[in-house]
Every structure is written in structure tokens, then in C-alpha cells.
């Protein structure tokens, strides 16, 4: 193994191999999962209490707590899995090896924006906005395809759902036009 290889591996959080070596990214994932579970477990104490006679021996907290404990128990194995898997040629870091490009974050934020615009603009204008903005955001510049796509596709989807499937969409600010 070259120095650069070992540097890369260190950056990816691989601890020195050994019989019970931990893998830092999985350790973080395990901590996140356990924190969520612990939060939800504590939340079960805020469930309304019911008398045993009404609960018929099945309290509303029992099953969620059981599931949360099982999740936490399985999660304990996560940080130790990497070393075993890599020996068998399975790389658990394959999907997360590269950080997502900026465009992934932008797309995520844009999706939230589109949803906020959906009731405010109305369904059809919002769909047109998506059909124009998303391809542009992803680098599409072939206007001869983009313009007919943005005009026809949202209209077809809107008509299919509103006319054929009888869905009442939010009318939005442009309701007087439709």
C-alpha cells in the first residue's frame, strides 16, 4: 500500500485493521441512529397513560420500546462491520465515498422550494416551473427540446390528473387564468 493510499483510507475514517477495529463513519452513523432511538424512547414516556384494565395488558408503549431497543441493539454492531466486509471484498463506503456535489444540495433545496410554490402558484404553473428550472439547474441548455418539454409535459400531467382522474389541485395565485 502506498502512502497516498493509506492517507486516503485515513480520510475515509478507516481505523487500523484488527480483530475488532471500528470504522469511524459507521461509528457516527451508529451514534446518530442511537440518538434518534433514545429520543423516541424518551418520547414514549410522554404518551398518555392508560389504566391496565383499559389497555387489556397491551400498553401503547410496550411495542415501540421493544422495537427501539432492538434497533439500538443491532446498531451496536454497525461500527465493527466494515473490517469484516472489506475482507470479503464488500466496500460499505462505496455509496458515500465521494461527497455529494453542490448540485445535490441545490436540488434538495430546490425541491423544498417547488413544494412551497405548489399551493401558492397553483399546480400547473408550479409544474411548469419545475419543468423549466430543474433541467436548467442540471445544466440543460438545448432550448429546442426544453421549451416544448416545459410547455407540453406539465400540461399533459395536469390534464391527466385534473380531467381524467378528477383531482382538485390547489388553485393558487393564477386561479383566474384556469
Amino acid at each position: 500500500m502506498t502512502q497516498s493510499d493509506s492517507d486516503t483510507e485515513d480520510r475515509r475514517g478507516r481505523a487500523p485493521s484488527g480483530p475488532v477495529s471500528t470504522h469511524i463513519p459507521d461509528l457516527i452513523v451508529a451514534l446518530v441512529v442511537i440518538t434518534i432511538c433514545a429520543f423516541l424512547y424518551v418520547n414514549t414516556y410522554w404518551f398518555d397513560s392508560v389504566p391496565s384494565s383499559l389497555a387489556q395488558n397491551v400498553l401503547p408503549t410496550t411495542f415501540p420500546r421493544l422495537v427501539l431497543v432492538v434497533i439500538m441493539a443491532i446498531t451496536v454492531f454497525l461500527p465493527f462491520e466494515y473490517a469484516r466486509k472489506i475482507e470479503r471484498g464488500i466496500d460499505l463506503d462505496e455509496e458515500r465515498a465521494d461527497r455529494p456535489d453542490m448540485i445535490v444540495w441545490i436540488t434538495g433545496v430546490a425541491l423544498v422550494g417547488f413544494l412551497l410554490a405548489f399551493p401558492w402558484l397553483g399546480a400547473l404553473p408550479a409544474l411548469i416551473l419545475i419543468a423549466v428550472a430543474m433541467p436548467l439547474m442540471w445544466g440543460e441548455r438545448r432550448w429546442k427540446i426544453l421549451v416544448p418539454y416545459a410547455a407540453l409535459f406539465p400540461l399533459a400531467v395536469y390534464l391527466l390528473f385534473s380531467q381524467v382522474l378528477r383531482v382538485n389541485f390547489p388553485r393558487g395565485a393564477f386561479s383566474s387564468l384556469f
Partner: peptide, 12 residues
């Protein structure tokens, strides 16, 4: 074009 179309279908 493919994924914006999928998103339109997903929303609607």
C-alpha cells in the same frame, strides 16, 4: 428531462 418528469409525477 427524465428526473424532472419523475418529480412532477411524484408531486402530483
Amino acid at each position: 428531462f427524465l428526473w424532472p418528469s419523475v418529480f412532477c409525477f411524484a408531486i402530483v
